Amino acid sequence: MIYLAILAGTLVIGGLVLTSLIAKNMAPGNKRLAMETERLKEDMDTWVTKLVPIDKEELELFSLGQDKQVLRKGVTTTAKGIFTTIYHEPVLAYSYRQYLGKAEKPNALLYARTAEHEYIFWIKKGTATLFIDSQEVGTLSRDGILKGKRTGKVIAQLKPGKEAMQPVEIGGKEVGNLTTSIVKAEKGLHERAFSFIRPDISDKEEQLFLALALEELVKRAVGS
Rank of each mutant, 00 (worst) to 15 (best):
I6R: 07
L7K: 02
G14D: 06
T19G: 13
I22E: 09
K24F: 13
A27H: 08
G29M: 12
K31M: 09
R32F: 14
R32Q: 15
L33H: 08
L33C: 08
A34G: 12
M35Y: 13
E36S: 15
T37W: 07
T37M: 11
R39M: 15
K41S: 09
D45L: 15
T46G: 08
T46I: 11
T46Q: 12
L51V: 09
D55L: 07
E60G: 07
L61K: 10
K68V: 08
K68W: 03
V70N: 11
L71W: 00
G74N: 04
T78R: 09
A79C: 13
H88P: 03
V91Q: 05
Y94A: 03
S95N: 10
Y96S: 06
E104F: 15
E104K: 15
K105C: 05
A112M: 05
E116L: 13
E118I: 13
I123Q: 05
F131C: 02
Q135A: 12
D143A: 10
K149N: 09
T151Q: 12
T151Y: 10
I155R: 02
A156C: 04
V175K: 02
V175M: 03
T179P: 01
E186L: 03
E186H: 07
A193S: 12
S195V: 04
R198T: 11
R198K: 15
D200I: 09
D203Q: 13
E206L: 10
L212F: 04
L212I: 09
E216A: 09
L217A: 08
G223D: 03
